[in-house]
């Protein structure tokens, strides 16, 4: 039986420039702190949130809805940390 925690949440991209290099770097750094597997993207087109080149391909423009899934021991903590970035618009306008 698989006891691994798995959380799924949806986020809307609200900052003007979307997930370009700077926000992508923030996401990668945040995700890199956790052991959990973290996937992000539009449904059926998810990439690892630990890959900066991957993050640039998920089409995270302003207004896009992205699905984030965290899997593993520290899934909750990882989700909380990523949520903070989305909710603060990656500290951009």
């Amino acid at each position: 039986m698989d006891e691994t925690k798995s959380i799924v949440r949806e986020f809307k991209v609200c900052n003007q420039y979307g997930i370009h290099a700077r926000p992508a770097a923030l996401l990668v750094k945040a995700a890199g702190k956790f052991a959990a597997e973290i996937l992000i993207g539009k449904k059926g087109n998810e990439v690892s949130a630990k890959s900066i080149m991957g993050l640039l391909t998920i089409d995270g423009h302003k207004g896009a809805t992205l699905c984030v899934q965290t899997k593993g021991e520290d899934a909750e903590e990882a989700m909380a940390e990523l949520a903070e970035l989305f909710e603060n618009n990656f500290f951009e306008e």
């Binding site: 420039y17 979307g18 997930i19 370009h20 290099a21 700077r22 423009h61 302003k62």
Partner: peptide, 17 residues
């Protein structure tokens, strides 16, 4: 290269938004 790719990404996103 990094800046140019970033500008390209931002440009694409702005058009889509």
């Amino acid at each position: 290269a990094a800046k140019e790719l970033d500008e390209k990404v931002i440009d694409t996103f702005l058009r889509k938004a």
